[in-house]
């Protein structure tokens, strides 16, 4: 028997790629936006990244992605800094060895299906801030979590409102409509 080590270079390369492409497009590209973007890429666009997301009041989240991000920072492929504004959070930008890491995952990132999915993700979501992305990804998570129970539009809005009580109902309704138009949520 031979030993094998499966190092997830594709995941690391994906973090480098998203950082590179979202650095100017996304309002404050940080840890929250990265979490939600990868969630949507995996769950909505079907790119297999191997993350297992769980739902929290702050939306879908996986600590594995933070663990990967730490490593990508160690590789000097990204730089992470705290944002000292009233909103807080982090800012992620490409590091000196960003291109090298992307090249390491080149086959995966150049795959037409993956590449198209990343293009679509960026086209549809890159203008959203962390708050909006968190709402959108929570809606997607709840609708998929309840898929087998025939969740109505009204019930989905109510459940998201319960999880995220600081969002006004019209705001949730609008976000559901946006996702419906993009055929990312549907109802029986």
């Amino acid at each position: 028997m031979r030993v094998n080590i499966d190092i997830p270079w594709n995941r690391y390369g994906l973090i480098a790629e998203l950082t590179n492409r979202l650095k100017y497009q996304c309002p404050q590209f940080g840890k929250t936006i990265l979490q939600k973007m990868v969630y949507l890429l995996q769950e909505v666009y079907g790119v297999k990244c191997g993350y297992q997301f769980d739902l929290y009041t702050y939306g879908p989240f996986t600590s594995q992605l933070l663990q990967d991000l730490d490593l990508v920072e160690t590789f000097n492929a990204v730089r992470i800094s705290s944002v000292m504004s009233a909103v807080g959070g982090y800012h992620i930008e490409p590091g000196e060895r960003n291109e090298e890491l992307k090249e390491k995952a080149g086959e995966f990132l150049r795959d037409p299906v993956v590449s198209k999915a990343i293009d679509n993700l960026i086209e549809h979501f890159s203008s959203s801030n962390a708050k909006k992305l968190e709402l959108l990804s929570t809606i997607v998570y709840v609708s998929r979590d309840m898929r087998d129970e025939g969740l109505s539009r009204e019930n989905l809005i109510q459940m998201v409102s319960d999880v995220k009580p600081k969002f006004a109902r019209p705001e949730i309704e609008e976000a559901v409509s946006t996702l419906e138009e993009k055929q990312m949520v549907s109802f029986p």
């Binding site: 031979r2 030993v3 080590i5 933070l66 663990q67």
Partner: peptide
């Protein structure tokens, strides 16, 4: 280097363990 060793060790390697696979993790949440 770890990848290289795994590919060269053949039968001499018994198994590989990664912190990532451990249920108890130390992450930076």
């Amino acid at each position: 280097l770890t990848e290289f060793l795994c590919s060269e060790l053949g039968e001499d390697g018994a198994f590989v363990d990664k912190a990532e696979s451990s249920w108890y993790k130390f992450d930076s949440t």
